Computed example of a mutant assay.
Amino acid sequence: MATRTAAGPRQRLLEAAEELTYSRGMNVGVDAILKRANVARRSLYEHFGGKDGLVTAVLERTTEADERHYRETMDAAGDDPRKRLLAVFDGLEAVIAEPTFRGCRYLSADLALADPDHPAHAVTREYRRRITALLEHELTRLRHRAAGRAAAQLFVLIDGALAAGATRRAEAATGVGEVAELIIDAGL
Rank of each mutant, 00 (worst) to 15 (best):
A2M: 06
T3M: 13
R4F: 07
R4D: 10
R4Y: 07
T5H: 15
T5N: 10
A7F: 04
A7N: 11
G8L: 10
P9F: 00
P9D: 14
Q11L: 14
Q11F: 02
L13K: 02
L13I: 04
L14Y: 05
L14V: 08
A16T: 01
A17H: 04
S23R: 15
G25Y: 02
M26N: 02
N27C: 13
V28Y: 01
L34F: 08
K35V: 06
A37W: 05
N38P: 00
V39S: 14
A40G: 12
R41Q: 13
R41S: 13
R42W: 05
R42A: 14
L44N: 07
E46L: 15
E46H: 09
H47I: 07
G49C: 03
G49S: 04
K51C: 01
D52W: 02
D52T: 09
G53E: 05
L54R: 06
L54G: 09
A57I: 09
V58C: 11
L59H: 02
E60P: 10
E64L: 13
A65N: 11
D66T: 08
D66A: 13
E67D: 06
H69Y: 10
H69R: 15
R71Y: 03
R71W: 02
T73F: 07
T73S: 14
M74C: 09
A76H: 12
A77T: 03
D79T: 12
D80H: 10
D80R: 13
P81F: 08
P81S: 11
R84W: 11
L86Y: 07
F89L: 07
D90T: 14
D90F: 02
D90R: 15
G91V: 03
G91F: 01
I96N: 00
A97C: 06
A97K: 06
E98I: 00
T100M: 12
F101R: 07
F101P: 09
R102S: 06
R102F: 00
R105A: 00
Y106R: 07
S108E: 06
A109R: 00
L111F: 04
A112C: 09
D115S: 09
P116K: 05
P116S: 08
A120F: 06
A122S: 07
T124W: 01
Y127D: 04
Y127N: 03
R128T: 09
R128E: 08
R130S: 07
R130M: 01
T132L: 13
T132A: 14
L134A: 05
H137R: 15
E138Y: 01
E138H: 14
E138S: 09
L139N: 09
T140Y: 06
T140A: 15
L142T: 04
R143C: 10
A146N: 11
A147D: 06
G148D: 13
A151K: 03
A151T: 03
A151D: 05
A152V: 06
A152H: 10
Q153S: 14
L154A: 09
V156L: 15
V156H: 11
L157F: 01
I158C: 05
D159R: 03
A161Q: 00
A163M: 03
A164G: 06
A166R: 09
T167W: 14
R168P: 00
R169F: 00
A170D: 07
E171K: 12
A173S: 15
A173D: 05
T174H: 12
G177T: 03
G177Q: 12
E178L: 12
V179W: 08
A180C: 08
A180G: 08
A180H: 02
E181H: 01
L182E: 14
I183D: 03
I184H: 08
D185K: 14
D185P: 00
A186Q: 13
L188M: 13
